[in-house]
Design a protein around this nucleic acid. Structure first.
Length: 515
DNA sequence: CGACGGGACGC
DNA sequence: CGACGGGACGC
């Protein structure tokens, strides 16, 4: 036992956050410091299988990786007369000490009253900080101050605040509520609050969240021990926010749409939702009205039924041109812009009756600046959202709607089964297909349209910048059938190789618990 | 040939 | 205020 120093622990506040970190003014210097070499801590290295070479132990480390893992090193301000052994003894009860180092003056070799204590884990360092800060180690000396050491590469000279050590940033299922988040992470410590990052307009979770603990050791414990699939890391402080967060067309910033909730309308166009309330276009007849032209014989009832497939139609009238029956045009109006844009997207070029392509355009032909803006805006949302899973399929009428409307978008040399619903996005993937496109990739929505038809499709994933993608299926047989039917086929002029995907890179993660 | 792996909060 | 050592793997 090298416990020959009487360590006096003065009971004080236990939370670092509450404690006063007063200045230490060490006056006299008692030239008592240990000159012995650093002692090898029983590290958990498994270097055993090396050539027998460096067996003479006591020559190596002070830990090489000073900041590995992050926040595992303490910066300790003490009396100048503290020894390395005394420090080590004081902190060893928190476990995992990898090194203790007293800073000394370069010239005089006198200790400067500051030292570093390296732990194996951040949680150990944090706990030691919380417990030891403010303690009096040597009778008659000032209480010590204990901080997480700045990383060696950092040039900052500020103390690391608890604020930076108590909030973690995690990836969670989109279905998680704040309650779920709290229930998941409270096993690691007392939680001050949980926040889920949501789409500001729709409230839809982005699958990311923050958990604020009361103590750094709790946050560290969570990061070290929570399921790896949460990818927990320390959250960057909010204050020094990245200066450039632009909301404009930011490329991969998709997903800014809502899920359906109200019965007969597209949620992103409900009048009381602010998406583009600023463009006061919702009540404009022009931007909600479509013109349909046809050369074939159609009846008022047929056209009505067709455009009524899109929710929100409030007016539809067919006008026959002279000498009836050979030509006609119809005026259709919806009660919201989104429905009108969607109807145009889906029905323009649609063959009805078969062999006859309908022409559908905006009544104002999209020529007004406001109309163009609105069209672009809503179209962008629709393209990425319509076929995007269970929530959006709610707004599609169950009978016939999808299969009828998707016809003009996809041309292929194979007879496709009708559209099927996507599997819920949190379904477990049972099989993945790897698809190579030649000469170029296909749009996401087209692929979803094609690959969903065998059932249980969870998600289409296109690899950015590559001509390949992955199709995730919740059912193996569905995936196999898709592969059998689609391999080597041509969709919209693009030939596809459809293969089983290699297993994803091993990451030994358990799946997130589902409560 | 043709391979995935991610992340940020209205002041 | 109170901040960064000693010593050198071996293809």
């Amino acid at each position: 036992m090298r416990f020959n120093t009487c360590v006096i622990l003065q009971p004080k506040a236990s939370s670092v956050a509450e404690q006063f970190r007063g200045k230490v003014r060490s006056s006299g210097e008692v030239g008592l410091h240990s000159n012995r070499k650093p002692i090898n801590e029983p590290q958990t290295h498994r270097v055993a299988e090396r050539k027998a070479k460096m067996e003479d132990s006591s020559s190596k480390h002070i830990p090489e990786n000073l900041d590995d893992p992050p926040n595992s090193r303490l910066f300790v301000v003490t009396s100048r007369c503290i020894t390395e052994d005394e420090l080590r003894d004081s902190f060893s009860r928190f476990g995992g000490i990898q090194g203790v180092w007293l800073v000394k003056d370069k010239q005089t070799k006198e200790p400067k009253g500051v030292s570093y204590v390296k732990f194996a884990k951040s949680s150990q360092a944090c706990l030691a900080m919380e417990e030891m800060h403010g303690k009096v180690l040597l009778e008659g000396t000032k209480p010590i101050k204990v901080f997480i050491a700045q990383s060696r590469s950092s040039t900052r000279h500020r103390d690391v605040e608890d604020e930076e050590l108590t909030r973690i940033f995690v990836m969670i299922p989109k279905t998680f509520t704040e309650e779920d988040l709290k229930n998941t992470f409270r096993e690691f410590g007392d939680i001050e609050y949980c926040v889920i990052i949501r789409n500001k307009f729709t409230g839809e979770s982005k699958g990311l969240g923050y958990v604020r603990y009361y103590k750094p050791s709790q946050a560290a414990h969570a990061i070290e021990n929570c399921d790896k699939s949460y990818r927990a890391i320390l959250a960057e402080p909010r204050s020094k926010n990245n200066s450039s967060e632009d909301y404009s067309a930011g490329g991969t910033r998709g997903g800014e749409y809502s899920s359906a909730d109200s019965a007969n309308q597209y949620p992103f166009t409900t009048p009381d939702q602010g998406s583009y309330a600023m463009l006061d276009l919702r009540q404009s007849d022009f931007t909600r009205s479509l013109m349909m032209s046809t050369r074939a014989v159609v009846t008022q009832e047929q056209i009505f039924a067709l455009f009524d497939l899109i929710p929100g139609m409030e007016y539809c009238e067919l006008h026959r041109d002279s000498y009836g029956m050979s030509k006609g045009h119809a005026l259709i109006r919806y009660n919201n812009l989104g429905s009108a844009v969607y109807a145009k997207e889906k029905l323009n070029g649609f063959e009805y009756p078969p062999g006859n392509r309908l022409q559908v355009s905006f009544y104002d032909d999209g020529e007004s600046p406001a109309g163009r803006m609105a069209t672009q805006f809503v179209t962008a949302q629709i393209i990425s959202s319509v076929w995007n899973g269970a929530s959006s399929s709610q707004m599609i009428k169950p009978a016939g709607y999808p299969s009828v409307l998707s016809v003009p978008r996809v041309q292929t040399d194979v007879n496709l089964p009708p559209l099927k619903k996507l599997a819920p996005s949190d379904s477990k993937t049972k099989e993945r297909l790897f698809v190579v496109f030649n000469p170029s990739t296909l749009p996401h929505d087209v692929l979803e349209d094609v690959f969903c038809r065998f059932g249980s499709l969870i998600e289409v994933h296109l690899v950015p910048g590559r001509k390949v993608g992955y199709m995730k299926y919740a059912d193996k047989q569905c995936a196999d059938e898709a592969m059998a039917v689609l391999h080597g086929r041509i969709v919209n002029g693009v030939k596809m190789k459809v293969m089983l995907a290699d297993p994803p890179r091993e990451e030994s993660h358990k799946r997130p618990r589902t409560y």
